[in-house]
Design a protein around this nucleic acid. Structure first.
Length: 732
DNA sequence: GGGCGGTCTG
């Protein structure tokens, strides 16, 4: 077609006018062919005009191709290209760089104005957005992006890729899909890096199916794309597929990177891939990947989650370059597995090495303090948080609330709660369960309503917390109302924990028959939690027949658990059924089941003291026993009778029982607390088991006689003793 | 263009 149009040789002006008049790309094609025919391709003026016209027609690819075939481009041609490519700022900047590097031209004022025009359109915006993403200001980066879309239409694939990674962090699937639509609109949806970001976004939002479809659209996935997909499978619990893709990558002969391994390590639920973790570990040893701190941190984490703390610690100790994340992984590993003292001592070690903690570190330490009841250390950490300005971090403030409620300072917790600008569902849950722990059922219910009003959706945990609060405050009607609203208003399918809470509510309130009926009507098979709750209710209300029913189920479901046998034995003793009580204890002994020994902790001047039953080890023992004797004398005058019958495990002589009871660990701790504190000061103790009836009674008397407030945290809740009464209303 | 560490129930 083109050949037919070729005419005899013409001069440059002729072609310039042809170019100027061209109204379609095909006109330009014809003109281009004639220029080639007339050997005018080396004429910069003609070629420049041609390129300019191509750029006017937005045919950037053709313009760039023509330019790359130009032997000696001059400054003017460069300027034309930089200006014409301003809507593809990346290309525009590439031209500018090539101008400086390849040809050594001095750019003129026009060059600069064109570069700046390109920059202000897109690159400047992209730089700001990616800067925000790099500093984890994801919300702000989205705001800037929205601004950019509003003010200029010139976002490019780089913008979208950066924004998508931000959206993936925020898990805003809907926004992500809108950006995906924009990508389709401007024709960069099929760009590999955009697709890779989309794979990552869909994986993080849990839609692994779509993620895989998008991955399949990438023609020849590079390592980064593979890494996104491998880690996507892994964090969605598709461990086998993750490993499969990893093997595929290895077979393709590709050299994997540290990111590949980090993504592959199964740190997410479901746990239990110990063998796989060991083989990844082995692979890392062979390929020297353990020198990489990210990999050794990820392995430390997964071993911790598998309860393999020794393996985790070995990795941590052998890691040549410990980052803050390595320390945090190890500390949280200990804290989450209940090795709270080790967590704290590792924290102190870190401090001695002058390594500054970050919000992640203090969150774990606060969790350890909460479990331990270490109020002194918790307050010290709170000061540190204020000093370092970590208060705005939602994890930190939530952990702080949890620490204060579990250390008995519910008012402090509420102060922190009120001061927060941002609260998520976990924050609300912590405060609600805190009120439950302290027996403040009505406050918990009020807070629950406030939470719904503020637009936060409750989770399963919220309902456990609120039902638990109802149970500990004897709020049967309210509990039943919440349970029903959970199903009908919030569309939740109750799980075993929720059913157990309801059994607990009914059982504690003495509605034992109703509780049994409730269990029988459950749509799922009742487990240890439900029967255990029933047994607890039977103990409070001294019903040995139903206790028998519950324990038969429990012994079958959980034969190794001693607690249930002890509970049943207490119920028998209580009904003077000493034979049965004794035979149960025989079973415990014969089966070599170990009863958790009771112990009580008290903090004096920031130092923790632990007492066990009939403790003989404490250096101030003499004083403690003297104090105890003095108290007993005064209490007997006031009408105290040891609750031997209901509490003791053994059918021994009355006097002997009394001696046994008198040395329960909480009594020792209270006596010690009285000795060590100022007149009128509060005493706080923490017990690992549920407080027994006698100790509860004892503490009520002590609070009356000594005019002290005594706060006791037991395995279930808080008791605040004041003027001879307890905040639980003898209901626990 | 991708990766590791943190809060709430029983």
């Amino acid at each position: 077609m083109i050949c037919r149009a070729i005419s005899p040789p013409r001069d440059r002006n002729f072609f310039l006018s042809l170019i100027k008049q061209a109204t379609t790309i095909s006109h330009l094609d014809q003109t281009h062919a004639q220029i080639i025919h007339n050997n005018l391709v080396t004429d910069n003026i003609t070629i420049t005009k041609l390129i300019q016209k191509l750029l006017d027609f937005k045919s950037h690819v053709r313009a760039k191709l023509l330019f790359s075939n130009t032997d000696s481009p001059d400054l003017f041609l460069y300027n034309v290209l930089i200006k014409g490519l301003r809507n593809s700022p990346f290309d525009s900047l590439c031209m500018y760089r090539s101008l400086l590097q390849k040809h050594g031209f001095e750019p003129d004022n026009f060059t600069y104005s064109f570069v700046i025009a390109a920059l202000s359109d897109t690159v400047l915006w992209n730089t700001i957005i990616s800067g925000l993403v790099k500093t984890c200001c994801f919300d702000e980066s989205l705001q800037v992006f929205r601004d950019m879309v509003k003010r200029t239409k010139s976002f490019d694939s780089t913008t979208l890729a950066v924004v998508l990674s931000s959206i993936a962090e925020l898990l805003e699937m809907k926004t992500g899909m809108m950006v995906q639509a924009l990508a389709l609109k401007i024709g960069c949806h099929s760009h590999d890096h955009v697709l890779t970001c989309l794979v990552s976004l869909y994986s993080k939002c849990g839609d692994i199916f779509t993620a895989r479809l998008l991955f399949n659209l990438i023609g020849k996935p590079d390592l980064v794309a593979y890494n996104a997909m491998i880690s996507g499978y892994s964090c969605n619990g598709e461990t086998e597929l993750s490993v499969q893709l990893f093997q595929e990558l290895l077979l393709s002969g590709c050299k994997v990177s540290s990111s590949t391994i980090v993504g592959l390590i199964p740190v997410f639920y479901p746990f239990g891939y110990l063998d796989l973790t060991r083989s990844i570990h082995g692979f890392c040893v062979k390929s020297n990947f353990l020198l990489n701190s990210s990999i050794s941190t990820a392995l430390t984490t997964v071993y911790s989650r598998l309860n393999e703390l020794e393996l985790a610690r070995k990795l941590f100790d052998e890691s040549p370059e410990k980052t803050l994340a390595s320390w945090n992984a190890m500390i949280s590993g200990y804290a989450q597995n209940g090795q709270t003292e080790t967590a704290i001592s590792l924290f102190h070690e870190m401090q001695n090495l002058n390594i500054q903690p970050n919000p992640v570190t203090v969150t774990s330490i606060l969790s350890a303090c909460a479990q331990l009841g270490a109020l002194g250390l918790g307050k010290w950490v709170h000061d540190l948080i204020k000093k370092e300005c970590f208060e705005s971090n939602i994890y930190v403030s939530t952990a702080l609330i949890d620490m204060y409620t579990k250390c008995g300072s519910i008012d402090e917790a509420r102060t922190v709660f009120n001061s927060l600008q941002e609260k998520n569902v976990v924050t609300w849950n912590s405060m609600i369960s805190g009120y439950g722990l302290h027996g403040y059922g009505h406050e918990a219910l009020k807070l629950f309503d406030e939470m719904l009003l503020s637009g936060i959706s409750p989770t399963g945990v919220t309902f456990v917390s609120i039902l638990y609060a109802c149970s500990h405050a004897g709020l049967v009607k309210e509990g039943e109302r919440i349970f029903h609203s959970m199903v009908s208003d919030h569309g939740f399918e109750p799980n075993s924990e929720h059913y157990a809470c309801m059994v607990d509510i009914l059982g504690r309130a003495g509605k034992l028959e109703e509780a049994v009926e409730f269990i029988n009507k459950m749509p799922i098979k009742p487990g240890p939690a439900e029967w255990g709750a029933l047994l607890g209710g039977c103990m409070v209300h001294k019903n040995s027949n139903l206790a028998r029913l519950a324990s038969d189920q429990l012994f079958e479901l959980d034969p190794e658990n001693v607690g249930y046998r002890v509970l049943l034995s207490n119920i028998y003793s209580n009904n003077q059924n000493y034979d049965r009580a004794a035979s149960l204890r025989q079973v415990v002994r014969r089966k070599n089941l170990v009863k958790t020994p009771g112990c009580t902790l008290i903090e004096v001047n920031g130092q923790q003291h632990v007492f066990t039953s009939s403790d003989r080890a404490h250096p101030q023992l003499k004083g403690i026993y003297a104090m105890l004797e003095k108290l007993m004398g005064k209490m007997k005058d006031a009408g105290y009778l040891a609750e031997t019958v209901t509490t003791a495990l053994h059918d021994v002589e009355e006097e002997e029982k009394e001696i046994m009871l008198s040395v329960h660990s909480e009594k020792l701790a209270i006596a010690f607390g009285l000795m060590m504190s100022e007149e009128g000061g509060e005493i706080r103790i923490i017990k690992n088991l549920r407080v027994c009836l006698d100790c509860h009674n004892f503490t009520k008397f002590v609070s009356g006689i000594t005019e002290r407030v005594i706060i006791v945290r037991d395995a279930n809740r808080f008791h605040r003793f004041e003027n001879g009464a307890c905040s639980c209303g003898d209901y626990w």
